[in-house]
Amino acid sequence: MPAVIPRFRHAGPPGASVRFTIDGRPAEAPEGVSLAAALLLAGVDGFRPLCLMGSCQGCLVSIDGGVRERACLAPVRAGADVRLA
C-alpha cells in the first residue's frame, strides 16, 4: 500500500510521463527514470533497496512476468506489469 506521503519527490523539469502498474495497481512516473526510482516515487512499501547500483539485490522485481531482476538497472517502461513479490 502506498505510504501517506511518498518519501521521495520528482524535482526535475516537468516532462513526459509513463503509466505502468505495480502489483496490478496503476502508477505513473517521469519518463526515462529507473524502475527503482519510479517505485520509490510511487511510495511503494516493502520495497527495500539499499544501494541502487546493482549490488545489494534489495530491489528485485518481476517485469511482465519475467525472471526477477534489479529495478535499479531497469528503465521504467510504459505499460509494464511490475510485480514486487
Binding site: 505510504a3 506521503i5 518519501r7 521521495f8 520528482h10 526535475g12 527514470v33 526510482a37 516515487l41 533497496p49
Partner: peptide, 25 residues
C-alpha cells in the same frame, strides 16, 4: 538500518543525479 527509508548514501545521490528524485522531509 533495515527500515524503509534507510539507503546507502550513494543511492540517494544516484536518485538525484540520474532521475532528479529527492527525499521529501
Amino acid at each position: 538500518w533495515t527500515l524503509p527509508g534507510v539507503f546507502g548514501v550513494g543511492a540517494l545521490q544516484l536518485l538525484w543525479k540520474s532521475a532528479a528524485v529527492l527525499p521529501q522531509g
